[in-house]
């Protein structure tokens, strides 16, 4: 099974570090995830033992295949192909992943000044739609993750905004 790790459009050094750490790789392997793809954005990746290939940087740890790259125009395909997603807590990524019905662990970035990301992560976590964790507790979160216990995220309901605007602009229901 495959895990996709994404940091979004900026950088998140601590998440990339954690995702490639032996304890996380071992925890993933224990749960059956033996392929790790990391979208690292502008994060620091010096110090990892990576080999350059056309498909990104490659490496292998504990028999787990690791691929790292910085950006792609869309992550759609990577979300589709993953069995688990570990992500920064950006609201766009959260919505995209949950709407695909994929299990999600989010790590709010503690270095962001206005940390409302953390509020969103915890609110959705308490509703059971995802797991919120930290970089240091990531291995533990993976081990304790029970995918079947996550509650499905409601589908996009366009009728709410449509009704709201129709009412605002004088269109009868």
């Amino acid at each position: 099974m495959r895990v996709f790790v994404t940091v979004g459009s900026t950088k998140f050094d601590a998440l990339v570090q954690a995702a490639l750490s032996p304890s996380v790789i071992i925890a993933l392997k224990q749960k059956g995830y033996t392929e790790v793809v990391v979208q690292c954005g502008n994060s620091q990746i010096d110090g990892f033992d990576l080999v350059v290939t056309p498909a990104g940087w490659r490496s292998e740890q504990e028999g787990t295949k690791i691929t790292v790259w910085r950006f792609k125009p869309t992550l759609e395909e990577d979300f589709n192909e993953a069995d688990l997603i570990i992500s920064h807590a950006g609201s766009g990524t959260i919505l995209d992943v949950l709407r695909k019905g994929k299990p999600l662990i989010v790590i709010p970035n503690p270095t962001l000044a206005d940390n409302h990301q953390e509020e969103l992560a915890h609110a959705l976590s308490s509703l059971g739609h995802l797991k919120a964790s930290t970089t240091s507790a990531l291995a533990e979160a993976i081990v304790n993750l029970d995918v079947s216990s996550l509650s499905p995220f409601p589908a996009f309901d366009g009728s709410r905004f449509r009704q709201l605007l129709d009412e605002e602009m004088g269109f009868a229901p």
């Binding site: 609201s91 996009f156 905004f161 449509r162 269109f171």
Partner: peptide
């Protein structure tokens, strides 16, 4: 509006990144 067929001109601001995605989801529902 008296006629259901009447139209309404609209503008939406796309503020980049997550803001744009959300604004376009709202648009998609119309």
């Amino acid at each position: 509006r008296s006629r259901q067929a009447e139209t309404c001109s609209l503008a939406v601001f796309l503020g980049s990144g997550g803001h744009s995605s959300e604004a376009l989801s709202l648009m998609a529902s119309l």
